[in-house]
Write a protein that binds this DNA or RNA. Sequence first.
DNA 1: TTTATTAATCGTATTTTTACGATTAATAAA
DNA 2: TTTATTAATCGTAAAAATACGATTAATAAA
Lengths: 113, 113
Amino acid sequence: MIKSKATDFLRSEIELAEYAKALAHPARIAILNLLISKNACICGDIVDELPLAQSTVSQHLKELKAVGLIKGEIDGAKVCYCIDKDKWEEVQGLWDHYFKNFKNKKDEKCCST
Amino acid sequence: MIKSKATDFLRSEIELAEYAKALAHPARIAILNLLISKNACICGDIVDELPLAQSTVSQHLKELKAVGLIKGEIDGAKVCYCIDKDKWEEVQGLWDHYFKNFKNKKDEKCCST
DNA sequence: TTTATTAATCGTATTTTTACGATTAATAAA
DNA sequence: TTTATTAATCGTAAAAATACGATTAATAAA
């Protein structure tokens, strides 16, 4: 329970929000879906599947890579992207833990009711 | 698998992104944490706990209410907020399903490696 | 009543996100 | 080599998110 400043939030809160933000756009969900269904994907194929310009897709890929959910492997002039299994499971675990945090509470009524 | 327009994403992709967006800010994670730990919370108490102005907190509460994760109950001049158990479990289930979607795949190597 | 408290909303400034075309750097193909 | 392909980056415009103070409407307290 450490707050670095009065205006700051907990590290854990910031961390969860960061992962949520990475998933907070349909294009990024769509990209992850593609990588899941095809197991891996050339960047160009992703661009073909999405209704977005190449530079925009590249930006979304960059964000997903920044949080570590995907990794890119250079293959000649092309780049093959895939999901980072370890990070995926880490994020899965974080959210699972977060959601269970409430679900495990005993079933009290809300407020006065 | 319905795309309403060429420039659109799948309903499921939009839905997941919407829930992610609701969780994509430390203040909203902090609010949910408060509601979990105290089971319920008067709006004013939330304002006291967060390093944000009353109007800003009210906005964040509005967003969480908009996606259904919390509900507010008027109690005189005050408003008591709490987590909506049904929606909470629905969102939990959606993410759980989404993450398992990949985890359940057989362990193939990424791209060419 | 009048006054105080509470929380939503309004108006607005600032920042961040999203998107695109153009350019660049790198590899592949001719 | 020269030319084509691929994907990242740059510059920038537009939209959305975030934040705040001021105001409002409602209830509670005096």
